[in-house]
Simulated assay, not measured.
Amino acid sequence: MAAKDIRANGPAHVAIIMDGNGRWAQMRGRPRLYGHQAGARRVREIVESCPSLGIRYLTIFAFSTENWKRTQAEVTGLMTLFRRYIQKEAQELLQNGVRVRFIGDRDRLDPKLVEMMRRLEELTEANDLVHLTIALNYGGRDEVARATKRLAREVAAGRLDPEDVDAETLAHFLDTCLLPDPDLVIRTSGEARISNFLLWQSAYAEYEFTPVLWPDFTRDHFAEILDNFGTRERRFGAVSA
């Protein structure tokens, strides 16, 4: 499959719900955190594949606002994994031309982790080959609620006329205001739901649900889905020509 064909017909922005880490580990008789560690290694392969597959924007769902309901041991392990990922991958991301952004509510996160996130964003801000966005303590409804609060403050302060508020206005207050909307959303592990991920931004995205568990999701799986995307007709509410 030629990369140039994917560039011509493929998506510019892909978002991925990385599901199945826990089940992958349990199938091997290992603790769930073992699966998350394997999933983190898979992230590297997929990010590295983006330039050759014509993907400039990649957004991954790392931790949702609902994931706090998991056991304390798993949550603590995930937070440790996030810190280790930043420490281990920072220089390689920089050297590979990857710009990193984080979206989500940072208020509940450990201040030391938040500072590491900020530093990684600052370190890579001049990169432009691949824009990697990591959704951490993120929920689509929470994002819209926070955006609405910011918008309301602008109205209350007299800096924004309520009559001028429309969908485009609200989009400027979202965490993703600097990103294009995703063209394609992929969910691994066979689950066919969107789990509160990029609800606003994915209004006209194409969806692909694959049975492959995230730690097993290779570059070849990714390329095949992108190739299939190129055959879809995207009408954005219109009718076929």
Results as ranks from 00 to 15, higher is better:
L199G: 05
D161S: 12
R193G: 08
A90K: 07
A40M: 08
T169Q: 03
A145H: 10
R159L: 11
G190F: 03
A8S: 13
Y57N: 06
W214H: 12
R150Y: 06
R159G: 13
I186H: 03
E122P: 03
Y204A: 12
R153G: 07
S52T: 13
D181R: 08
L170T: 09
K112Y: 08
L151V: 06
E125P: 01
R235H: 07
P31M: 11
M1Y: 11
R119Y: 08
E224R: 13
W214F: 15
L178K: 10
N228P: 00
Q37N: 13
A62T: 14
L213G: 07
L160M: 13
T65S: 13
L160Q: 09
F209M: 05
D142L: 12
L109K: 06
I194V: 15
A62Q: 06
R83M: 14
L93W: 03
I103V: 15
I17H: 03
D166Y: 02
G140H: 00
I6M: 06
N228Q: 14
A171N: 10
P182K: 01
E122R: 09
D227P: 00
R23V: 04
P51A: 07
L123C: 05
I134K: 01
T218I: 08
A157F: 04
I194M: 15
I16C: 06
F63A: 06
I103F: 05
H36T: 01
Q72F: 10
A126R: 15
S240Y: 09
I46A: 04
E143L: 08
A62M: 14
V100L: 07
Y34I: 04
E208K: 10
E45W: 02
E206M: 09
Q91A: 14
V14A: 02
K69R: 15
H36C: 05
A192F: 09
N21H: 10
W200C: 07
G39H: 00
T76E: 15
R70I: 06
A126Q: 15
V239W: 14
A157I: 03
P11F: 01
T65F: 06
R234M: 07
V144A: 11
D142A: 15
A73P: 03
D110Q: 12
L113P: 02
G10W: 01
D5L: 12
R70P: 02
E208T: 05
L136A: 08
V98T: 04
I194R: 08
T231R: 15
R150N: 12
A8V: 09
A223V: 04
S202T: 15
Y204S: 13
A126H: 15
Q201W: 01
L109C: 06
A145N: 09
R108F: 12
A156H: 07
